[in-house]
């Protein structure tokens, strides 16, 4: 694709992307005005866009329009969300902030209930059951897996789970005249767990580097494509 194949919008967009990318890369030589300018632009654009999305997707279609289009008893039902929303503005004034407390409490309560319920039902119980099922011989045979290898794999996972949890167990029983420390077997288990945790952190670090590398490749590729289109145009 050459420069002449690009539209005006594409050209301006490509030029802006090229300039802003170079400004971000200027952080290699340290903090500077160009980097901070780009930072402020990104934050401002993001905030403006989010405000537009919220207004366009939530406030108007779900809050204001139902009130304007409702009549009779529907107006009372549709006006309740708007009324409670307005009560939240009372939090801005300390004298009347108590008016917004019930609404805020309702929001926090619903959010906490959803989060806790989902964590228990969606993560804790299924993961505990999955760890137990690693030693389900019927399931292993059903999946046509090697039973011995499956049991070894399950044992490693079980050991990693228990030892990692043991690493974060800091409860000790105080004994008079003795050094306060965990029992020897707990120390040993914690050391094993520490090994599993180190491996996990190393894997996460590799993933972070891979993600950052992909982002860098995407930006450099975009720059080279833009430069190539400019060169090809002339």
């Amino acid at each position: 694709m050459s420069l002449f194949d690009l539209g005006v919008a594409d050209f301006i967009g490509g030029l802006l992307g090229f300039t802003l990318t170079l400004a971000v890369f200027s952080h290699f030589i340290g903090d500077n005005v160009a980097f901070r300018l780009v930072l402020h632009i990104f934050i401002g654009v993001s905030a403006g866009y989010i405000a537009v999305v919220v207004a366009n997707n939530i406030l108007w279609p779900k809050l204001l329009r139902p009130v304007l289009e409702a009549d009779g008893w529907e107006l009372l039902w549709a006006g309740l969300p708007l009324f409670f929303s307005l009560l939240l503005f009372a939090r801005l004034f300390p004298r009347y902030s108590i008016l917004g407390s019930p609404v805020l409490a309702f929001i926090v309560g619903v959010g906490a209930a959803a989060a806790i319920g989902g964590a228990v039902i969606g993560v804790i119980f299924p993961q505990a059951r999955a760890t137990i099922n690693l030693f389900d011989l019927d399931a292993i045979r059903q999946n046509q897996e090697n039973v011995n290898l499956a049991l070894v794999n399950g044992s490693i996972i079980l050991l990693g789970t228990i030892s990692s949890l043991a690493y974060f167990h800091f409860g000790v029983r105080k004994q008079a005249g003795a050094k306060t420390q965990r029992p020897d077997w707990m120390e040993w288990l914690a050391q094993v767990g520490q090994g599993f945790i180190v491996i996990a952190f190393g894997l996460i670090f590799a993933g972070i580097y891979a993600a950052a590398l992909a982002a860098l490749i995407e930006r450099l590729s975009s720059i080279t494509r833009f430069i190539y289109s400019l060169i090809a145009g002339f």
């Binding site: 299924p126 993961q127 059951r129 999955a130 099922n133 996990a200 894997l203 996460i204 590799a206 993933g207 972070i208 891979a210 993600a211 992909a214």
Partner: peptide
């Protein structure tokens, strides 16, 4: 790639 190790247990379960 950075969050794949944390999602993997839900696949291996």
């Amino acid at each position: 790639a950075q969050s794949e190790p944390l999602i993997r247990p839900f696949f291996d379960a």
